[in-house]
Amino acid sequence: MKDIIFFATVVFGVVNVVIALLVVAGRFIFSIVDRRREKAEQRLKPEVLAWLDEEGGSIPRRRLEKEVFEGLVARYGRALRGLDRDRLAEMAREQGIEKSLAQQLRSRKWWRRAAAAYRVGDIGLPLVRQLVSALEDENRQVRDSAARSLGRLGAVAGVQPLVVSLAHNRIARAVGAQALIDIGLAAADPLERLLWHHDESIRAVAAELLGHIEQGSVNALEMASNDMNPEVRVSVVRALGRCGSRTSVEIVNRMLDDPVPFVRAAAATAVGSLGTKDRFKRLVDMAVRDEYLPAKAAAAAIAVLEPEGIQRAVRAPGAPPHLVEAADLARVS
C-alpha cells in the first residue's frame, strides 16, 4: 500500500513539474518573440512612413520584418478612404504585398489567414474572390475578417455570399451586418429575399438592415410587416422608423394596433422617430390604458412629438403615470 501511495505521489509530482515547466518555458519563448516584434515595429515605423510618402525603399524580405511591415501598412491604411487608400493599394500591389497576403490567405495556420483577410480590407486590396472563398473557411475568425474586409472594399460581388453566410450563422451577425451596410445599396435585393428565410432570426436581421441601407425597400418591408413572428415585425417597424416615407408612416401607424405588446411598443417608438401625429389619439390611448411596455413607449413618443403639451398635461392632478414618467425624463434629457 505504501509503495502504491509513494509511486502515485512521485508520478503526480513529475506530471505537475512537467506542466509547470512547459507553461513557464512557453512564456519565455513567447516573450522573446514579442520583444523581437516590438523592436522590429520600432525600427520599421519610420521606414513605413517614408514608404507611404513615396520616398522609396523596398519592403523587408525577412519573414518577421515583412509581417510587421505589412501590419504597419494595414494599420495606417485603416484610417484612409477614397483616393488615398487606392494609392496605398496600388503601392502595396507594386511592392508585392498583395501577392504576399494572397498567399497568406491560403496558409495552413488559421491566425495567418485571419490576419491576412483583415489586412486586405485595411489596405484596400481588391482580393474579392479570395475573400469570398475565405467566407467558407473552417475558422470563424477568418470568416469574420473576410466579411469585414468585403464591407470595407464595398465589394458588390461579396453581397450574395455575405448574405448566405449571415443566413447560415457562419459569420457574426454584427460583423456581417456592418459589412452589408458598408457595401450599401447593392445589398438591398439579397436582403429583401432574406425576408422570406425560414429562420425568423435571419428575417429579423434582414429587416433591421434594410432600414439602414435602402429606403426603396418599403414595399418588401410592408409585406414583412405581416410576418407571423413578432420579433420580425419589431425589426420591420424599427426599419420603417428610419425610412420616413409616407408609406412607411402608414405601415407604422397600422402597427400601433398589433396584437403583441412589444410590437406595439416598437411601433410607438417608430412613430416618435418619424415625427408623425396622424394617430396621436391612439398614442394617448396607449399611454393611458395599454400594458407596461407599449404604454411606456407611447408616452415617450408623445414627449417627443408634443414636448410642451406633455409638460402641461401632467401638471393636472391624477395624470396618467406613464405620461408623468415621460414628462419627467424629457425634462432631464
Binding site: W111, A117, Q141, V142, D144, S145, R148, L209
Partner: peptide, 12 residues
C-alpha cells in the same frame, strides 16, 4: 483580427 471594432460600429 478581433471583431471588436466591428462590434462597436454595428447597428446590430
Amino acid at each position: 483580427s478581433a471583431t471588436v471594432d466591428n462590434v462597436f460600429r454595428s447597428p446590430l
